[in-house]
Design a protein around this nucleic acid. Structure first.
Length: 412
DNA sequence: TGTCCACAGGAAATACGGGGGT
DNA sequence: ACCCCCGTATTTCCTGTGGACA
């Protein structure tokens, strides 16, 4: 009896202190497209990305009196909402067109992971004809022919949204040549291309013949400012979190910090999410102080994520260095290399030359895992002094992670 | 002043792997 | 199915270097 009540009480208190109610709304990847649009609908209603939307509208407006908008290129750093804004806009545009009986369709070619020209065109073909996926062995030319064939007889507007163009590997030229020169001439559609890139100079090494042919309009997405971020975050808080558990000023702080350092909405939401996670784990409210800790955590995760996604050789090098390094005595390249060699044999990994190892060291230095500075000891040689001054906490984590990567039991 | 240590780091050669053309 | 080509990773070879030491 008493036990029952106790348990019930505990559960109740857990419910009360629960912070994350709908985790999905903290991570766009988990949302369905229509949910994303709904979120955006609300965000855009708050004047966020207003100028951009307005510019887009102006750009595409000629469609409604039978004109032909030129191609468009969107610039902006990651997390400024290029993709999502454009998708949202295209979606709107489509429904308006439907209402006005204007034929229009769009296709989103997602290049967030780099792909060769062939695969991109293949994707395009797939969108046009959901049944087929062309095997390799068929030539680029043939593939292009197929695409043209699929588009024959269609009328109206056709918008191809090429997301992250600069990720087209290898023969970007033939890809663009096809889209810009060949396709518009062989089909009766009014083709509009929309490109996205975070490199301002992606057109730089393009074939000048195509470049001169390509009539393009440019549009810039600025990083979010604190005000925008605040809107975005507060929307997420409403959807995903229990407001009771969030202290005054947390929202403002996250917005301020994020806008100051990157203006990246995704990272801002991540910070919010992390803060909530820590608070929930500890059964407290989300406080300002907690936000700082979440920042630290993210910082820490950066190192871990970085090393996790690095080549194994780099991991081994880092492991050797941070285990060999002791307190304040600096470590010299030769010793580090010995350690690395020893570790490699233990790990059954082919050890690289010292020359290559030296490059690994500079890389680690660049990423900020270690500090390396050359020092000369006169006739006792000239070498790099390696020091590590990351917090011990991070080092332990890194060691642990690397051992895991190598399938070794970190108990030791 | 010259020597010489223990590397740094550039250049060219080579190995490798996978996509693409045929 | 096969080969070629190309970009990347690594090796090989090499020249350079600051300063302690004689």
């Amino acid at each position: 009896m008493h036990a029952n009540i106790k348990i019930e009480k505990q559960i109740q208190s857990l419910l009360n202190t629960r912070i994350i109610i709908q985790r999905r709304f903290l991570d766009d990847e988990q949302l369905e497209r229509y949910e994303q649009f709904n979120v955006l609908e609300e965000i855009f209603a708050l004047d966020v990305r207003d100028t951009e939307i307005r510019d887009l509208s102006a750009h595409f407006a000629p469609m409604f009196w039978g004109g032909h908008p030129v191609h468009l290129s969107l610039y902006g750093k990651t997390g400024t909402g290029k993709t999502i804004t454009m998708l949202y806009f295209l979606n709107m545009l489509q429904s308006i067109c439907k209402k006005k009986k204007i034929e229009m369709r769009y296709i989103h070619l997602d290049l967030s992971t780099p792909k060769p020209c062939f695969r991109v065109l293949n994707d395009l073909a797939c969108y046009l004809d959901a049944t087929k996926r062309y095997k390799k062995g068929i030539s680029l030319d043939e593939l292009m022919g197929k695409i043209e064939e699929k588009l024959q007889g269609h009328k109206g507007y056709f918008i191809i949204f090429v997301d992250e163009v600069d990720h087209v590997r290898r023969d970007m030229d033939s890809f663009l040549k096809f889209l810009v020169k060949r396709l518009p001439q062989t089909v009766s559609l009014k083709l509009i291309l929309v490109f996205t890139s975070n490199k301002l100079n992606w057109q730089e090494n393009m074939d000048p013949r195509i470049k001169s042919f390509l009539k393009i309009n440019e549009l810039f997405f600025k990083p979010y400012n604190a005000h925008d971020l605040k809107q975005i975050l507060s929307l997420r808080i409403n959807k995903a979190l229990n407001q009771q558990m969030i202290e005054q000023g947390v929202l403002e702080k996250i917005a301020a910090v994020s806008s100051k350092t990157h203006g990246d909405a995704r990272k801002a939401v991540e910070l919010l999410s992390k803060s909530a996670l820590i608070a929930e784990r500890e059964g407290t409210k989300v406080t300002l102080e907690l936000v700082d800790r979440a920042l630290d955590d993210i910082e820490k995760d950066k190192y871990v994520a970085m090393i996790k996604s690095s080549p194994r050789q780099l991991q081994a090098a880092l492991y050797a260095i941070i285990t060999r390094t002791t307190g304040t005595k600096p470590l010299y390249t030769g010793d580090a290399y010995d350690g690395y060699n020893a570790f490699c044999t233990k790990i059954k990994l082919r050890a690289l030359t010292q020359r290559a190892f030296s490059d690994l060291v500079s890389e680690l230095d660049m990423y900020g895992f270690i500090h390396a500075r050359i020092s000369s000891h006169g006739r006792y040689g000239r070498t790099k002094e390696l020091t590590v001054n990351l917090p011990k906490e991070i080092l332990d984590k890194l060691r642990h992670v690397i051992l895991m990567e190598f399938d070794l039991d970190p108990v030791h």
